[in-house]
Amino acid sequence: MAPAVLLVVAFLLAPFVWTIYRSFFSDSRTSPFSWFDNYSRFASDPALTRSVQNTLMWVVGTVLLPFVLGLAIACMTNATRWSRAARLCVVLPYALSGAAVAVVWNFMLTTDGAVNQVLTNLHLGSLAHGWLLTWPGNTIVMILANAWQATGVAVILFLVGLQSIPPETLEAGALDGAGSWQQFRHIVLPQLRPVSIIVIGMSLVNGLKSFDLIWVLTQGGPGRATETLAVSMYNETFLELRPGVGAAIAVVLTVIVLAASWLYLRRQLDVKGE
């Protein structure tokens, strides 16, 4: 146990403590102690306000879409002849890195990209526009691109959950006259609860720390309009050269991730009695 603890302390806790410490110092050359000045930028800097808005949108999108789509695809492909091929198609994007997914979607979403070309060819040119240029549309299309990739793992988890449901419970429900929807609502869904907790918990954390797709697609632009807190942290630290502000964003982001995960998992696991 000791080596593991040492590694956690050296590579996780020590940098975290240092980051908290740094966040209380100014970014000027002499770096004086500046109390909560770096944190106050959340109230005064419109780019950070937008970043918080975007992060919330990402959390909602990355929790809802993979959950709903994953559950739907898993249910539809659980017991069909073509289920293996269908599942492969959905799961395959999950094997791709975020950067590779971003490159593919960049090819689709730029103003002269594939999506607008298809729309123009279908005489729907009026719908063609710069998908990555205007807020909030650019954030929404990136959330959709992320869902395209992230749904795969939700499908796998829900399939495992579906296959662990005892068939007798469904047969009993059918004998009692329950229809398909009632079986799903009252028999399948409650038994998928443990899997759902994991899918939502994972999506929640992924949404809060989303970075790679955004960075490759827009680098947080144009005009910092698509930044999430993770991107803002990088941008402030390495591009704007304000490591103190970057550290403050890192601390806030960490607190949000920890608090959200802890509240969610505690509530869910308590309900289950574990």
Binding site: P222, G223, E240
Partner: peptide
């Protein structure tokens, strides 16, 4: 760096 971000926003029609 900050002004460059602002100019990017202007080009995208944000401001």
């Amino acid at each position: 760096q900050g002004n460059t971000d602002d100019l990017g926003g202007f080009m995208a029609g944000q401001t």
